[in-house]
Write a protein that binds this DNA or RNA. Sequence first.
DNA 1: CTAGGGTTAG
Length: 651
Amino acid sequence: MIVSSIPSSCSSLRGSNGVSPSSPNTLSTSTAAATNSSMSANVLTTHNLRISSRSLARNLLRCSASCTSPNNFTFVPVLNACASLRALEAGRKVHEEIIQSGCEADVFVGSSLVDMYSKCGSIEDACKVFNNMPSRDAVTWNAMILGHVKCGQGQKALELFHQMQQKGVQPTPVTLIGVLNACASMFALQEGRCTHEQIIESGWESDVFVGIAVVGNSLIDMYAKCGSIEDAKRVFNKLPSRDVVSWNVMIFGHVKYGQGQKALELFRQMQEEGVQPTPSTVVGVLNACASVVALEEGRRAHDWVIKSGWDSNVFVGNSLIDMYAKCGSLEDALKVFNKMPSRDVVTWNAMIVGYAIHGHGKEALKQFEQMREEGVQPDDTTFVCLLSACSHSGLVDEGLRFYSSMSTVYMISANFQHYTCMVDLLGHAGRLHEAENMVLAMPYKPQVAAWMALLGACRIHGNVEMGERAAKQVLELEPENAAVYVLLSNLYTATGNRDLSENIERQRKERSVKKHRGRTWIEVDNEVHTFVVDDQHHPQMIEIHAELKRLSGLMHDAGYVPDTNFVLHDVEEEEKVFNLCHHSEKLAIAFGLINSAPGTPLCIRKNLRVCRDCHTSTKFISKVVGRAIMVRDANRFHHFQDGECSCRDYW
DNA sequence: CTAGGGTTAG
């Protein structure tokens, strides 16, 4: 009956053959579908997101303008369409018509308006509509809560939840999803726990765990994002029915907290249980591969992506680029990039970063030029990527130029990450005073990262006074920051202040600040192996130690002299006597040499920065065994070959 | 009418 109410001028927009996303007629067909409430707006949301929002919005407008008497049933799907296409202006026009037609007071229409405005990025308008509504139901409140979460106002979302309860409106499962998302977005573990308790106490738990996995999944996600993997696991194990999203959030949670291997195990387990993966799963798996340099495992995932036909998915493509770059194969990253049918700004950023971490600054800048030529608008992350590319390659002038053009040409204002990159860039280049001025010039309270970058630069260039200033600032903000003690102690040692160095170590111990353990990963025969400092538990430890002894002899003959003057900054115990076996990196290298075919390059990943001693000894190892060794540390790649390293900025 | 998980940087 709704269809029959559409006047003849709209009939050209009406389609009866469903929706075919690839045909040029999709626009008009689905617009009519949206106008027909019985077909629901889902048809439109699922099929048309790829189509230019402007042209669809035009069609919608044309349609709604020519319909003589639209009612509340016609407005809702039209608002939905505007929301899913982020067509704010079209949405406003529809709003005007709603006011004229007098359906403004309808709860359904009001809720849809709130939803439309918040999805189109105008939370102010959403609030205005909400405040003027004569009656609101749970859906209205939900739309408001979710709207605030999506625009980053988690605190406001929680306040709305409390108001909703005060007004006696019963929360629905969707409310809980919104509240849990709000907690996750603010890393508010306490608040999240309270919500969990509330769910149990209120007896909504039966709904949560039996009827709808979505709330359970949101709980897992909230715990994982707030850093409590243990709680996430507990909820996961209690879920009576797990779906693919339950597994996905677990996989992501583990990757994010440095447990890439565990994430890969979860994925295997998921397959054993016969759960069908989704593109999201692949993204999680590729992230996990990138985090532990599992190149072979990553390639297998890529094969499977192609078989599943997901290679045109932008998220998947972006993750593939990232995985290949972080696993050391820029060639494969570029191949994926070139084959992608559609790219977004993230695709370009990922490629720029790929070049950056490999120390190919010039290529990174070329990639940016190409991006501009193709008319892709850079975002704030693009500039973080570019500035770090300049920093890694010592391109100071270029970095300064990007920094200024960012705000003048691209209208992107500098955030604290950009400042940190600039401090790093200037500091590495030895322009310490300019770097310090950069920190002091930050328009907001300087963050720990900026002071750390300055301290790192002082360590490289041996500026004790400034280093002490920076360290003091960090400790005021984060007294538990172990890296400050390590860097400062190394700075003292490097400048011949042994007493001061020992003193700072003593202070660290007195305040019981624990150093992070150094960890190294290496993939051999499709399997990832992990080593920690002073590892004694590996089944092949005897062979590994024998190999290190052999290497040590060869290196000695080749002229290697260990630098015992330097505190090894990734060892747990204060151990100044040089010992090859301490470093997780050396254990991994020895393991790789024993277990892989001669001539194949070794690719290693560690969680801390490569220290000076590791750097020198790895150079020697690459020389005496004639193997290329690639080490990916916390920030970048170091390519060692025949006793040389491609990276020259620190040593 | 509202509804869970996804890509890049530090």
